[in-house]
């Protein structure tokens, strides 16, 4: 998925002030703001949150338009709910804005925090979950080229031009091949991991610290939350 690829790229290559903030303060900020979005009953508040996150995205040197475009994906599904509330004044707008705000917030956090740091938090809950998250992450980037090549080959060889059923059959065969190859590769990877001593432990070293900007971000989150309660 190209957006995962880019999100990963942004979080690992951009060196803004926001990127330097460690994962825990970002999660605390995320929870405060997300909760503010969820409980918010004021359209004004939701618009305010939208601009605050957009501002933070700019500060983080991220491409605002691209991230806004991604956040609109959530608006598509939110519209199913919004349309069913169309007779209730501003409510549909609130529903849409809540979805966009929340998506924008998530994107802001993942575009400024490398996935390993985020996933390391799962290690505190369950080693199995942490293992699966880390391996999914690593394997995603191992096979992304393969699937892109397969889709390209499918297109070049006329896989999309023989009518809908033929197209789906071609896609099915491509995915089938991908499944088989991936399973065989995962078996091979397991063997290699065993040679490297694998006994069910996967971890990522994460920095936990609270410096000025870390505290500022938390403070910002608390402020937004307080405004949401007041409004």
């Amino acid at each position: 998925m190209s957006s995962i690829y880019l999100v990963d790229y942004y979080s690992n290559t951009i060196k803004s002030v926001v990127h330097q903030i460690t994962v825990i303060p970002k999660i605390i900020f995320l929870l405060f703001v997300l909760f503010s979005v969820v409980i918010s009953k004021s359209l004004f508040n939701l618009i305010l949150i939208f601009f605050v996150i957009a501002f933070l995205i700019v500060i983080a040197q991220l491409p605002l338009l691209k991230i806004l475009k991604w956040s609109l994906y959530s608006a598509f599904f939110a519209s199913l709910f919004a349309v069913s509330q169309i007779q209730y004044g501003l409510l549909p707008f609130q529903t849409m804005l809540k979805a966009i705000d929340a998506a924008l917030l998530m994107l802001f956090v993942v575009c400024t925090t490398p996935y390993p740091a985020l996933f390391s938090l799962f290690g505190k809950i369950s080693t199995i979950l942490a293992n699966v998250f880390f391996m999914t992450y690593r394997f995603f980037f191992l096979i992304i080229d393969e699937i892109q090549t397969k889709v390209m080959v499918l297109k070049i060889r006329g896989g999309y031009v023989g009518g809908p059923i033929k197209t789906l059959k071609n896609i099915g065969s491509t995915i089938g091949r991908l499944f088989i190859h991936s399973i065989e590769r995962s078996e091979k990877l397991y063997d290699i991991m065993i040679i490297r001593g694998y006994r069910g432990v996967m971890f990522s070293r994460t920095t936990f610290r609270f410096r000025l900007f870390d505290l500022l971000l938390i403070g910002f989150g608390v402020l937004i939350f307080l405004i949401a309660i007041i409004l």
Binding site: M1, I128, N131, M135, T136, F140, I143, I175, I183, L189
Partner: peptide
Amino acid sequence: IKKIPMVGMMTAVALLVMSIPLG
């Protein structure tokens, strides 16, 4: 635990399959 790499791989495949254009 032997199944973990396969599960990780299947999850990665699931995420990737979502990107296949269907028109």
